[in-house]
Design a protein around this nucleic acid. Structure first.
Lengths: 192, 192
DNA sequence: ATGGTGCATTGACTTAAGTTAAGATGAGAG
DNA sequence: CTCTCATCTTAACTTAAGTCAATGCACCAT
């Protein structure tokens, strides 16, 4: 299963096969059952980060008024970071992470991550570039999302992540798109 | 003027004062007049990135239908990255960057950046963390924005960046918020 | 001073999303 | 097999943003 990560590293770094191999050997891959919480809102913030090899993790948040809002879906080849950084002063996590399906994740804690960077400085370069790329994409997505109507948002998501609608319940997708389930239902009907 | 950057580095790194000093000496700080383009949509993508010491840079985009949309405002202590990463295959820049005010910017190209990382590996660690932090914030902002009404978006922006409305014309702010100038005008009236 | 241009505001109308509530469907538990 | 719960759909109504158009205002150049 680690070949997914190897493929990813090859695409994003100039590390040699040998280096990649030794890095892979230090990684911890863990299997999680559907419904498992990686972290719950209110827990002390996790020191871990993840990389999705297989499966789907939903990030959500319970608001003050009790409403649940889905803020992200992480699927294959996506990193799950944050939480360590989002609110350094906060003593509890703002979000929950739950496995929507059976998941295979790379699990890393901050200390071992730091050690690996010291061992392989190229790895930190890769991570930096990866972060820059993700940030750039996030800013682009944001800009597009801002001026898109709910209908356009839906069209965009089925174009960019066509697997999502089949993997998750529609009301969660609606929440992720920032609209009501009723609206999503109408949009689907409108565009057939 | 570089003390702004020094302050920034102290906040975000564990580099010594001496190290910081020698890094600062290698940096290029440049002054730009109001109305100067850092890059124009259609130009070949820049190899440069910037850090705002003073002033305000607007990022915008002309859409296929000819409409101009403002996608970002960069002000004091914000980095302007992207462009190198956003569309590696694209041969022309998707955006324009224009100085809204007289600006003082740190200008770095990718080559000298790479050299400095080799010289000061801690600097790359700082950049990686900075990117992680920005990404984390971007994801959070995104999640909040998604489910906010235009009115809530306006309230949020005047809370988080109270200087913006006074620095830029309102129709550009409206564009940035993803709404029409008419709507923004009505919102302002509604909330007094 | 004056005309022009760009920007902000206001109004009338259209459109689509939110809200509330009621059914329809489907899967899982007992 | 049936009951239950969750999900999705549909409908009626409300609300606010988009659109189009007119007006007002301020700044600039001539």
């Amino acid at each position: 299963m680690k070949e997914i990560l190897m493929k990813y590293m090859t695409r994003h770094t100039s590390l040699s096969q040998a280096e990649q191999q030794s890095i892979l050997e230090e990684l911890i891959v863990q299997r999680f059952k559907k419904g498992t919480y990686l972290i719950k809102q209110g827990d002390s913030p996790t020191k871990k980060c993840f990389f999705v090899l297989k499966g789907c993790v939903r990030q959500y948040h319970i608001e003050d008024d009790g409403k649940e809002v889905t803020t992200n879906f992480y699927t294959e080849e996506q990193p799950i970071l944050l939480f360590n950084f989002e609110e350094p002063e906060a003593q509890t996590s703002e979000h929950s992470l739950i496995c929507v399906e059976e998941c295979l994740l790379v699990v890393a804690d901050l200390e071992s991550e730091q050690e690996m960077y010291q061992q392989y400085s190229e790895l930190e370069t890769m991570t930096r570039r990866m972060m820059e790329t993700y940030l750039s994409h996030a800013q682009n997505d944001f800009a597009k999302f801002v001026r898109a109507s709910p209908e356009e948002r839906y069209k965009t998501i089925i174009r960019n992540r066509p697997d999502l609608p089949t993997r998750i319940p529609q009301h969660q997708l609606a929440s992720y798109l920032g609209i009501t389930p009723e609206s999503l239902s109408r949009i689907k009907k409108r565009i057939q």
